[in-house]
Amino acid sequence: MTAWGVTGLTVERGGHVSLADVSVSVDPGEIVAVVGGDGAGKTTLLRTLAGAIRPTEGEVSAPSLERIGFMPTAAGVWRDLSVDENIAFVAAAHGLSGSVLEERRAALLRGAGLEGATTRLARNLSGGMRQKLAFSLAMLHRPELLILDEPSTGVDPVSRVDLWRMVSLAASQGAAVVMATTYLDEAERAHRVLVLNGGAVLLDGTPAEVLDGVPGHVVAADAPGEPARTWRRGRRYRVWSPDDPPAGVARVADIEDAVVAAAIAKGD
């Protein structure tokens, strides 16, 4: 079993450091969620892992392109081709044909709920359907490493559930999955979570390790505390404290609190 990933990765583009000394690895059958705010370096990390960006420093360990599935942020489907034509093009690029192609095509279309839309142009699909088609294209050749850049951004809740089911299925079939996401509930379902902030690693580990790795602790409050350490969540407030929590009390309730608290702690 080979683990894929990056070690000590630094990427500089146009004099700007997009990633600084980032390391992450993903085993076959594992899902690693990459989270972080805008400009955190999620897309740069994924594109470097996919081979679309050359690293400035560090090592990239990835299979050959024939064994990588990549779904870029902009969906990566050919909008003037139909669903079937998109699949046919990607299949040809990967040398898939005959009964193998038919079997995979049918399974993916069924999983994506696109069986009734095979002749529709990709440009006429809804956002969710287009994302699911892009995922199907990335999965068509059963890649060893599946790289997904925010596959569920802008997708309706039902399609998000479908997409997550497809991602889980891919992992259960042995693919190593690295996915960037802005939905932290998705990150909680991943095997491991990498939190990036300004191109550097903020937190890294299983969801439980990430929750436990936050410095200090967060409490829910009805009134705001110190402005620099307070944020609103729903109808209530969250206040971060650099002190360890009382015995038996969790540092944070979930990944969302963990990400915000870690970012505050870093700047504190």
């Binding site: 594109r47 081979g51 679309a52 024939e66 870029p72 902009a74 990566g76 050919w78 909008r79 990607v90």
Partner: peptide
């Protein structure tokens, strides 16, 4: 413009 050039770049072509 549609981002598929990036997709082509990481396909085994």
């Amino acid at each position: 413009q549609t981002g598929t050039l990036e997709q082509l770049a990481v396909m085994p072509l």
